[in-house]
Design a binder for these strands. Structure first.
Length: 425
RNA sequence: GGAGAGAUGGCAGAGUGGUCGAUUGCGGCGGUCUUGAAAACCGUUGUACCGAGAGGUACCGGGGGUUCGAAUCCCUCUCUCUCCGCCA
């Protein structure tokens, strides 16, 4: 969330930048400014009275100690009115605070100046492409047909056990999942990321910290008995490792990677977009998260984009990198790069990664700070994350792009992870 | 699920109604000594908000209450630990 003081000092900037995200912030910003001003007045007033109250209390204590109880009792009477006034100020102050907090979470993050103007997906800017388009054999099939033909993934069985969007992976289908997870984690480790295994259920505070709550409850599975949420991405538990933490500047950037299953309710999706592996309620993903110095967070972003790019290149998949336009960006992001791989039989691009700099937006909610050498005052850090990578669409693209009339070839980098198997028949 | 104990500063651990933002130890930082280091000694060391500043206010797990005054008393919630039960 945006810092209140920042909003108050830069109202026009906030309104102007949020217009890029096609968000009209004027009314909220004006309310925030008015409330913030009143909040400070109330605080100052009540603190003067509290100071007086503290002074009187000490005096009364001293009078009792000196045995001057009649003087003490008359001093007590003076506190009655004061107490009342303090109480009133506190009620008003609390009301203002909660109203401010509610307004504050309505404002999305400011997009970086690098973000292109635009309405939706069609306005995203392709910043890089790579890999070679495969030449498919006659009668090439989409991945869901291949998955059935080679008995790799059973979608109907998943429906029986759970429901749509919860496939059962079998044989090489299961092994290729495991191979990809291990490959991605090994790559991350070699690139200096600390591997962690986070919980898959998180509490409300964690959901709030990364921006899923309030507001996006509908996207997460929720266990009401214990009030816990199934994670939609490892970003949530991993970033929350750093909630209420002050780190040393010399330790930045902090690089963390985690594999997790991800759970998304994805209400309202249908049609070819959700066919096969294109969109699932449960899927696997390796996520990378960074805590960065504010001066260096864009350097970190570039490194993360280059890293994800190296993964899709090693897998030999044709890809493109998009810089999302304002209208297509998420609520919490300052800038986002999407990676898409070409799914040759479906003849469409599939999003497999999203790499974002959140700047101070999440860190403000998380109270994630860092301290420069010495006794410097803690400052808000920057957070970033990216998928590296999400499995299902990678599997879809591998199945489709690597299909031959003899079977499905295994990308070279995965062969060692599949016990030397070079082709799935 | 049953019974009990507990939650205090980076960590350990005092503090049961007043001058306590909080004894002390460890750790961290600075210094003395040393060729250097260790040891020893001295000093220093929480966060947030308001304020131009001086300074003020708040915070001892969260919330509420009693009181002129609460880390300390009362209520409530959450969490942790121990034992029993169940269990991968």
């Amino acid at each position: 969330m945006l810092n209140l003081k920042f909003i108050q000092e830069n109202p026009e900037l906030v309104i102007e930048r949020l217009a890029v995200k096609r968000f009209d912030a004027r009314v909220i910003v004006e309310k925030v400014i008015a409330l913030y001003k009143r909040r400070n007045e109330v605080q100052s007033e009540s603190e003067i009275q509290k100071a007086e109250m503290n002074r009187l209390s000490k005096e009364i204590g001293q009078l009792f100690k000196d045995g001057k109880s009649s003087e003490a009792n008359s001093a007590k009477e003076k506190t009655v009115e004061l107490k009342d006034q303090i109480k009133n100020f506190e009620i008003e102050f609390d009301a203002i605070e909660s109203e401010l907090a509610q307004l504050q979470v309505l404002l999305p993050n400011l997009p970086s100046p690098l973000v292109p103007i635009g309405k939706g997906a069609e306005d995203n800017v392709v910043v890089a492409t790579g890999g070679e388009m495969p030449v498919l054999p006659e009668g090439a099939k989409p991945h869901w047909e291949l998955a059935a033909q080679y008995d790799l993934i059973d979608f109907e069985l998943g429906v029986k056990i759970t429901g749509a969007g919860f496939p059962v992976y079998k044989g090489f289908g299961a092994r290729i999942q495991r191979a990809l997870i291990n490959f991605f984690l090994d790559q991350a480790r070699e690139n200096g990321y600390l591997e962690v295994q986070p919980p898959y259920l998180v509490n409300e505070a964690s959901g709030f910290g990364t921006g899923q709550l309030p507001d996006k409850e509908g996207q997460m599975y929720h266990d009401k008995t214990d009030n816990l949420y199934l994670i939609p991405t490892a970003e949530v538990p991993v970033t929350n490792i750093f909630r209420d933490v002050i780190v040393e500047a010399k330790d930045l950037p902090i690089k963390t990677a985690a594999y997790s299953a991800c759970f998304r309710r994805e209400a309202g999706s249908y049609g070819k977009d959700v066919r096969g592996l294109n969109r699932l309620h449960q899927f696997d993903k390796v996520e990378i998260v960074r805590i960065a110095h504010p001066d260096k967070s864009y350097e970190s972003l570039d490194e993360m984009v280059a890293y994800v790019q190296s993964l899709v290149e090693k897998l030999g998949l044709p890809y493109r990198i998009l810089r999302l336009c304002g209208g297509d960006m998420g609520f919490t992001s300052a800038i986002t790069y999407d990676f898409e791989v070409w799914s040759a039989a479906q003849e469409r691009w599939l999003e497999v990664s999203s790499v974002s700099n959140f700047e101070s937006f999440q860190a403000t909610r998380l109270k994630l700070r860092f301290r420069e050498e010495g006794h410097a005052k803690p400052q808000i850090a920057h957070t970033l994350n990216g998928s590296a990578l999400a499995l299902p669409r990678i599997v879809a693209a591998i199945l489709e792009n690597y299909q031959t009339t003899d079977g499905i070839r295994v990308p070279k980098v995965l062969v060692p992870y599949l016990g030397g198997c070079e082709i799935i028949r």
